Amino acid sequence: MRFVPSQENQDFASSLDDLLSSADVVAAARAWAAGDAGPGHRIWGALARLGVPALAVPEEHGGVGGDPADLAVAFQRLGYHGVPGPVVESIAVLPVLLGADSPHLAALAEGAIGTVALAPRTPFLLDADVADLRFVAGVDGSMTEVPAPSTEPLGSIDRTRRLFHPQLNTVTEGEPAGRILHNGVQSGEVAGAFAVAAQLLGAGRRLLDDTVEYAKARSQYGKAIGEYQAIKHLLADVATRLELAAPLLHGAAVALSGAASRGVDLDPVRDVSAARVAAADAAYLAARTALQVHGAIGYTAEHDLGLWITKVRALQSAWGTQAEHRAVVLDAVRKAAR
């Protein structure tokens, strides 16, 4: 059993980095926040040509039929580059929630943008105004398609995230969901938490990389601030936390894949929650440290640092809060100790 990315995973990550590094994602994210989804749609189109939206879609629906390790790689790179839009909902959650015979799976594989509300953890539709497909998951396991919102979005600390109340007054006919329960937890919630954990880990690494580069370039009292021991310790703490979170994410991918191994206790719900807690804590530390090292310039809206800081803060409560995921881990530990 491998708890680290394979060579194929690494090659896939490199391909994503090459694509997104040349796509001017920062400009697309700023345009997305301002209400212009055009540049963001072009990035989604490029991702579709690389097969990213099709990763979790079965092959019989035109998808790749990838495993959770592939999703972990993809979402780390999406988080690292700050790709806007409902990437978690569209790429990771909807392929799990929609039934095996859903006609919408092929559209998602081809790059259609989808979003979903799944109460109580995720009661709002993310970026419903630009999504092609919008769903509300019912407590009875049904999936109901809803129209484009007619109301203004709710505010978010991350301006690239626009949240909408589902328009339940007019809906189309519902369809059964292909949801599977893990220990009483809906699989859509597990998939969302797993993807958010990977996205946070990627965003945390981007914050660390940018802060290291800034510390090398910024001089004070005649030398780069990165040469001062206090700055080195701050950055080392972030690097350590990110590195410790990575094996938990890959372990969660193994648990989600259903792989069995002698002597290894795998629990998808527990392992995803553990990875989510570690990744979110590490990313939050990266954000706080980045702001501390950058100083006043890091507080300005014009500096790109804010795009990742606000995203990390917003994702802290996406697909479950830290307190909820800690409770899941604690409950699993208590049951194991009995």
Rank of each mutant, 00 (worst) to 15 (best):
E175N: 05
E152I: 00
A314P: 00
A54S: 12
A28M: 01
A109R: 04
S187F: 06
V238G: 07
S261R: 08
A119T: 00
H325A: 01
Y284L: 15
P103D: 09
T144C: 06
G79I: 10
D237N: 15
L154F: 11
G51K: 12
E145Y: 03
L235N: 06
D132I: 03
Q199W: 01
V196M: 05
L126H: 13
V96C: 00
W308S: 15
S261M: 08
K335M: 13
D237A: 13
E213P: 01
T300R: 15
R338K: 14
V130F: 07
A92Q: 05
V116G: 01
I91Y: 14
T160S: 14
E243M: 07
R205D: 13
A255D: 06
G188D: 05
R313A: 12
P53W: 09
A314T: 01
K311D: 14
V272C: 10
R159V: 07
L242H: 10
R205C: 12
V57E: 09
A260T: 12
L168E: 02
P39Q: 08
S14L: 12
A13E: 13
A253G: 11
V130E: 10
S257H: 11
H303C: 04
E243C: 03
A252K: 13
A112W: 11
L305S: 10
Q199C: 07
N183P: 02
V130C: 01
A92R: 00
A215F: 07
F3Y: 11
Y284Q: 15
V139P: 00
S257V: 03
A336D: 13
S6P: 05
L248D: 11
Q199K: 11
R270S: 12
R288M: 09
T300N: 03
D101V: 08
Q229G: 03
G263I: 06
V116N: 00
G51Y: 08
V264Q: 05
R30Y: 04
K232F: 04
P166L: 03
L105S: 11
A253D: 02
V293N: 08
L108W: 10
V4P: 01
A337F: 09
V212M: 11
Q292V: 09
G226N: 06
A246C: 00
D140K: 06
L285W: 06
P84M: 07
A112T: 06
T151K: 09
E145K: 06
A236S: 11
L154H: 01
A314Q: 13
D237P: 07
A287C: 07
R205Q: 15
N183F: 02
W319H: 10
R262E: 14
F194L: 08
A255W: 05
A34Q: 02
Q316M: 14
A215W: 12
Q199V: 06
A119V: 00
L285G: 06
R334L: 15
H294S: 10
S90D: 06
L163M: 10
I297E: 15
S156I: 04
V146I: 09
V93F: 05
A252G: 05
S21M: 01
A119M: 00
P39D: 04
P5S: 09
L168I: 04
Q7D: 08
H233Y: 09
A260Y: 08
L256V: 10
A246E: 15
L248E: 15
N9K: 02
A323K: 11
H81M: 09
A198K: 07
A332V: 09
T151W: 00
A280Q: 01
L201S: 13
Q229H: 13
A255R: 04
P268L: 04
Y228I: 03
D237Q: 14
D271I: 07
F194Y: 14
T321Y: 02
R121H: 11
Q292H: 12
